[in-house]
Simulated assay, not measured.
Amino acid sequence: MDVLSVSDGMSDAPVKPDEEVSRWNLIKAYLNDHSFIMNANVRALCGVSAAIANRILAGLVRDGKLEKCRENSWWVYKRKAD
């Protein structure tokens, strides 16, 4: 049986540094007009899956750029005070 090779942009391949910077810039711009960002917003901004959006947000929390908070019954991410 032949195996198809399909790339849907949802692989575990490492993200290029310039792509990380681009994603962070999109998120920062969004947070200039909004008090918080959610997974769905990251998916729409960056064109990624829910799992990748979670990884992006978790990485930004780990890097100290965002903090994870509860807003009503939802997890949201706010920009950390400088």
Rank of each mutant, 00 (worst) to 15 (best):
M1L: 11
D2E: 13
V3E: 13
L4C: 03
L4T: 08
L4R: 10
S5H: 07
V6A: 02
S7L: 02
S7T: 14
S7E: 03
D8F: 15
D8G: 05
G9F: 05
M10S: 14
M10C: 06
M10K: 06
M10W: 05
M10E: 14
S11Y: 14
S11R: 05
D12V: 14
A13C: 06
P14N: 14
V15R: 01
K16Y: 12
P17H: 11
D18M: 02
E20C: 10
E20I: 10
V21M: 12
S22M: 07
S22E: 15
S22H: 15
N25P: 05
N25F: 14
L26C: 03
I27G: 01
I27V: 10
K28M: 09
A29R: 09
A29Q: 13
A29Y: 12
A29P: 07
Y30K: 12
Y30L: 12
N32C: 04
D33F: 08
D33M: 09
S35T: 11
M38W: 09
M38E: 06
M38I: 15
N39Y: 02
A40H: 10
N41L: 02
N41S: 12
R43P: 04
R43D: 00
A44M: 11
A44H: 04
L45P: 00
L45E: 08
A51T: 04
A53T: 05
A53I: 03
A53V: 09
N54F: 11
N54A: 10
N54P: 07
N54D: 02
R55K: 07
R55V: 03
R55I: 06
I56C: 05
I56W: 10
L57F: 09
L57R: 03
A58K: 04
G59E: 12
L60E: 13
L60C: 01
L60V: 02
L60F: 05
L60R: 03
L60H: 08
V61Y: 01
V61G: 04
R62G: 13
R62N: 08
R62K: 15
D63S: 11
D63N: 12
G64P: 02
G64S: 01
G64H: 00
K65A: 02
L66S: 00
L66I: 02
L66T: 00
E67M: 03
K68E: 06
R70K: 15
R70P: 04
E71I: 06
N72T: 15
N72Q: 11
S73N: 15
S73T: 15
S73G: 09
W74R: 13
W74Y: 15
W74C: 02
W74L: 10
W75I: 08
W75K: 04
K78S: 02
K78A: 01
R79T: 01
K80L: 12
K80V: 07
